[in-house]
Simulated scan of single mutants.
Amino acid sequence: MTSKKELIYKGALKAFSQHEFSETTMDYIAEVSSVAKGTLYYYFKTKEELFLYVLEKGIDTLIQEVDQVIQSPLPRDEMLVKLLKVHLKFFAEKTELCQLLMSKFWGTHTMQGEVQKLIHRYFSKMEGFYTELQQEGYISATANIRTLASSLFGMVMFTALREIELGHEVYTKEIKASLIMLCNGVLKAEQITPFPHHLSLEE
């Protein structure tokens, strides 16, 4: 049975992804979540607190999926391809979170710092991993790691968001192959096969 807090999370995610923060009321979130207003306030005292909870839970889920790949025994070439596919599949399956992350409206001005802290946790993880690969010679020494992490994240998420808004399937063989091809420029040819043809794009 779905818990009340999980119902609130799903309802709030839907509400925040479809409307500006300033226009999303706790009354509306309670309605979308199918819980009483008193129940909503029992778990979350303010709209800001709920917004940060929704964002944190979504980012933590992505970090967990990234960690599973990074901690796996996969060879580096397979690991890089797997990470791209994990990101694309994550946004393909969590369309509302994708829309929320891409929203221009990050809540009130006083929450900007808290939101940035949450997002930084993800980028800190990815930048640490890309730095290791650069030190090992798998990524070009001329690549700026922060720019690389930001660009790859944005490339995948914008791709997913546009396909979602057009009503198209996101997690396709063609899109996966195209994203991998676009990433070839950061890889060192002598260390890694830019597009490992032996890897399945069907997963």
Rank of each mutant, 00 (worst) to 15 (best):
S124Q: 14
D60M: 07
T159I: 00
E203C: 01
M79A: 11
T46W: 07
C183Q: 14
Q64I: 12
A12L: 06
K37H: 11
F21G: 10
V81R: 09
F44P: 06
G107E: 04
K104D: 12
T172H: 03
V186C: 13
E202N: 08
E114K: 15
I119V: 15
Y53I: 05
R121Y: 07
K5W: 00
P73H: 03
I164F: 05
I119D: 08
Q64E: 14
V156I: 14
D60Q: 13
E202S: 11
A30H: 09
E169W: 02
L83I: 10
G38P: 07
T25F: 06
L80P: 04
P194W: 05
F158G: 05
E203L: 09
Y171T: 01
F51K: 07
E165W: 06
K94N: 15
E31R: 06
K82P: 00
E23D: 14
D27L: 11
K37F: 11
T108Q: 12
E202M: 04
N184T: 12
F153M: 07
Y41V: 07
L13D: 08
I70M: 09
P196F: 05
H19S: 15
Y130M: 09
S33E: 04
Y42N: 10
K37M: 04
S151I: 05
L88G: 05
T110Y: 04
L182K: 02
F105Y: 12
M126R: 10
V115N: 04
S22P: 00
E163A: 09
F195E: 08
T159M: 00
I29Y: 03
K117Y: 10
A36P: 03
E56H: 05
I192M: 12
Y41H: 12
K125C: 14
T24I: 08
E174H: 07
H19V: 06
L7S: 10
H168T: 00
K188C: 12
E78Q: 14
V66L: 12
Y53F: 15
E20Y: 11
L182W: 02
E165R: 14
M102T: 08
I119T: 12
Q99F: 06
W106Q: 11
R162T: 06
K82V: 03
P73L: 07
M102Y: 10
L161Q: 13
A149M: 05
G167W: 02
H19C: 08
Q64R: 13
L133E: 07
